[in-house]
Amino acid sequence: MKAVLMTTPGAPDVLQLRDVPAPTLQQDTELLVRLKAAGVNPIDTKLRKRGTFFPDRLPAILGCDGAGIVEAVGAGVQQFQPGDEVYFCNGGLGGHPGNYAEWAIVDARFAARKPTTISFAEAAAAPLVLITAWEALYDRARLQAGQRVLIHAGTGGVGHIAIQLANLRGAEVCTTVSTEAKAVFARDLGASQVLFYKDVDVAQAVVNWTHGQGVDVTFDTVGGAVLGQSFAATKFYGDVVTILEADPTTDWKTARTRNQRVSFELMLLPMLKGLVVQQQAQANILQQCAQLIDAGQLRLHISQTFALAEAAAAHRSLEAGSTIGKLVLLIDP
């Protein structure tokens, strides 16, 4: 089969299309999936630059997100059969092969049926960002109807899903953007307040928006100094959730003196640590999101698609910044 191999850490050009043996079923719980598309995420570019979590297993196939058609099932699989369309977040961290390839093996317990109303490209763009936003807002922050939430970078991959999930929960959304085009997109997704973070003091603007109280929940998808700034935008006893490591210079005093609950959302943890129950829970999130997507209540935005052989170009585009929504590799258009 054709697959994009990372032979060594480095610039995007280390990603090369090669012929490799096609995978075969090894366990009773596995699916053999003919991939139609693969999502491209920031974690892919980070692993390409610095090395995977399993540096002794090069070459590696990157790509956590995939969507395709089940070709064969293990003897113990009951919920899927050949011909079923599935999507999932599995592999791509340097251990289990990822989805920059024509075929993939995925445990049936970690896959979900693809939403019927969207393309394979849209489905492949979805899993990581759906699970991340869902876990951050619903599980970590326990977002409730009537609350106000600040979502940093609301037009990014995770952010544009988070705005929609917050609205579906009945929350009011404020988000940050860098351009007028992104502001228009954020409002179309359901954000009621849009801040140009380059032009305003975000924390003060949020405090003004909430009549001096601060938001109930802040979701940091940016990292760096943004986490520290988020504390000042969040009310006493509020929640702050981040998907990135805290900056070493982060001043935690504001969070402490406001009795805020600070949570970390690393959605790849179950895959990294082999936490089967949590991986099954993430597949259940995908099942619930598929229902929302098919009901027209949740949508994925793809900024650009690339052929499988153009994986390096996709990485360059993502690293250039300013992407609205997601980038996707089309494997079998």
Rank of each mutant, 00 (worst) to 15 (best):
G95Y: 14
K273I: 13
L17G: 02
V129E: 03
Q79K: 12
G83E: 01
E310S: 00
P9L: 02
Q81E: 02
L165P: 05
G92V: 12
Y197W: 02
R142H: 15
L17N: 04
I61Q: 01
C289G: 04
H315F: 02
V222M: 07
V4S: 05
Y100Q: 08
W209P: 12
P115F: 04
A281V: 08
D28S: 07
P270S: 02
I331Q: 08
I285D: 06
E310K: 07
D139H: 14
P12D: 03
T132C: 09
G170K: 04
V20N: 03
L128V: 11
L150K: 09
K326V: 00
T254K: 12
E172K: 06
A153D: 14
Q297G: 13
L327A: 02
L268D: 06
G92I: 13
G95Q: 14
Y87N: 00
N90Q: 15
G154S: 15
N90T: 13
L268R: 02
L286P: 04
A309P: 08
G68F: 11
T52I: 02
Y87D: 04
L168F: 03
A67G: 13
V207R: 09
Q204L: 08
L286D: 01
L58I: 03
A162Y: 00
A145D: 13
T218A: 11
R18E: 10
Q16P: 10
G156C: 13
T8E: 11
G76K: 09
A225G: 06
A307F: 14
A126C: 08
E172V: 09
P42K: 02
T257F: 15
G146C: 09
F236C: 11
G63A: 12
A75D: 11
Y197H: 07
A104Y: 00
G238M: 02
S303T: 15
F80W: 09
G156M: 03
A320H: 03
A108H: 02
F110N: 09
V206A: 07
P59N: 07
G321M: 02
